[in-house]
Design a protein around this nucleic acid. Structure first.
Length: 466
RNA sequence: UCCAGCUUAGCUCAGUCGGUAGAGCAGGCGGCUGUUAACCGCCGGGUCCCUGGUUCGAGUCCAGGAGCUGGAGCCA
């Protein structure tokens, strides 16, 4: 017997009138006393379930088919026919319905054919992929991840797998999770009474990575166009709809490139990914428009058609000051832009995605290239309507003397950065890159309101269930 | 970490002035129907988040705690 996915069966391609088998989980069952039941079966291959028409004449109709409800797993075989009813193109006229798993206690099975709150579904993260919403989010997330790899591959980038465990605590992007095999109840201590990390697994302190950027820069200065794409960890006690302790980050890095090349890359990248979602996941996006966020598709369509605006940080501050708008937080040169400022620029002033460039050096990281004015660095934020910052990037400081000065100003010891400094000693070139959180992109594309719904099992302060 | 709000049936929620618990959905039973989150009738279902206090009496008022959510900070 030919086994088809629900997606293949619903397309009807070349198999109309033939016997085939689909396998999946029951969404709903409706009975007709005329002697048949309609069982909607989904297998996650696409948004829609397929309707299986089960007649009374099936040997297990009374004993099993009538006990089917949401969550039961089934293997259904039958002829694929055009539906007599409305609402679906094809359906399966079942000749056999094999139940592989009933639901223990249907009354307490959490996934019911009704609207659940996202908060409740987070408590049942192992069952929420069976809902319309999380099935759709999962497929869109996959589509985005594949589009990211495809975009870079087509542009001649190489995917570099930078380490998850890092023994340098100098990535400089926030609080880190410690990785250790020391016995916490009986810590090894040196003569000075401090913990003796020489006895730890790596012979020194080790942490989970907060960014692959510094490591990928080394590969950039050999392979020219590279990117990292992997899990990233931040031990910050941030409890917001935008933060996770474990998330996936994309960080491209290009050699012989300046900030404008970086902005060009970011624009082409985002448009490619959004177009892929519009092309490949129309079914899921239509659902988001219906039930999650009316503007989900329109937002992406506008985005891929818009030319990004580019504005200097200094100009942006002036625009905000002259806007006449009352902001909750004041605007002044030297301060970072708040979300409300970013949203004003992109939603009300420019009405399109905006790249803000050249921020004051004191509010940005040490590795960003100092501009000729000596007070700004070649940093950029890509702001998107409806969310604010979506990408942050910069041209990197390629001049060793300037880098050393910047490190001293940030009170970083050159000794811990020898290998990073080497990249400026041996054949340095201008280079640039940016960072993008995958989950934030998923939130933006799907119109979700909490990042915990953009990853299968969210890790946040006080929560590492499942 | 700071500020605010919320916590009542498996789920979503209502509960008036402090007087002893309700609806819809889900589940069970019956009816009806090529049905579309079907519909109609009946039934079962409660640690009102926890601890303590005020009161003749607390889901309701007060204090402390927990969890969740939103905003801020930090950031992707």
């Amino acid at each position: 017997m030919l086994v088809y996915s629900v997606k293949q069966a619903l397309s009807g391609a070349g198999v109309e009138g033939q016997e085939l088998t689909v396998r999946g989980w029951v969404r709903t069952r409706r009975d007709s006393k005329a002697g048949l039941s309609f069982v909607h079966v989904g297998d996650g291959s696409c948004f829609a379930p397929i309707q299986v028409v089960a007649e009374q004449s099936l040997p297990n109709y009374q004993s099993e088919v009538l006990r089917l409800g949401p969550g039961c797993s089934v293997i259904c075989t039958g002829k694929l026919v055009r539906s007599q009813g409305k609402g679906q193109s094809f359906e399966i006229q079942a000749s056999r319905v094999e139940v592989t798993g009933f639901v223990d206690d249907p009354e307490t099975y959490p996934i019911q054919p009704k609207a659940h709150t996202m908060e409740f579904l987070r408590e049942v993260a192992h069952l929420r992929p069976r809902t319309n919403t999380f099935g759709a989010v999962s497929r869109v997330r996959h589509c985005i991840a594949q589009a990211i790899h495809r975009f870079f591959h087509e542009q001649g980038f190489f995917w570099v797998n930078t380490p998850i465990i890092t023994a340098s605590d100098c990535e400089g992007a926030g609080q880190m999770f410690r990785v250790s095999t020391l016995d916490l109840a009986n810590l090894a201590r040196g003569a000075d009474g401090k913990i003796d990390f020489q006895q730890d697994f790596f012979g020194k302190e080790a942490f989970l990575t907060v960014s692959g950027q510094l490591a990928v820069e080394a590969y950039c200065l050999a392979l020219s166009k590279v990117y990292t794409f992997g899990p990233t960890f931040r031990a910050e006690n941030s409890n917001t709809p935008r933060h996770l302790a474990e998330f996936w980050m994309v960080e491209p890095e290009i050699a012989f490139a300046d900030l404008h090349d970086d902005a060009d890359l970011a624009e082409a990248f985002l448009k490619y990914v959004f177009r892929a979602v519009l092309d490949e996941r129309e079914d899921d996006m239509k659902f988001f428009v219906e039930r999650v966020d009316k503007g989900a598709i329109e937002r992406l369509e506008k985005f891929v058609d818009a030319a990004f605006a580019r504005v200097d940080y200094g100009q942006a501050v002036k625009l905000l000051e002259q806007s006449g708008k009352k902001f909750e937080f004041p605007v002044a040169w030297g301060m970072d832009l708040q979300t409300e400022h970013e949203r004003f620029l992109t939603e009300q002033h420019f009405k399109c995605p905006v790249v803000v460039m050249n921020y004051p050096e004191q509010i940005k990281a040490f590795y960003m290239r100092l501009n000729d004015d000596e007070r700004t660095v070649a940093a950029m934020d890509v702001l998107a309507p409806g969310i604010g910052e979506i990408i942050g990037g910069s041209q990197r400081e390629e001049r060793l003397d300037v880098l050393d000065r910047r490190m001293a100003a940030h009170e970083l010891s050159p000794a811990s950065y020898q290998w990073y400094r080497d990249l400026r000693r041996y054949g340095t070139v201008p280079h640039a890159g940016f960072g993008l959180g995958l989950e934030r992109l998923v939130v933006y594309v799907c119109g979700l309101s909490n990042i915990r719904d953009a990853i299968p099992y969210p890790r946040t302060p006080g929560n590492a269930e499942f």
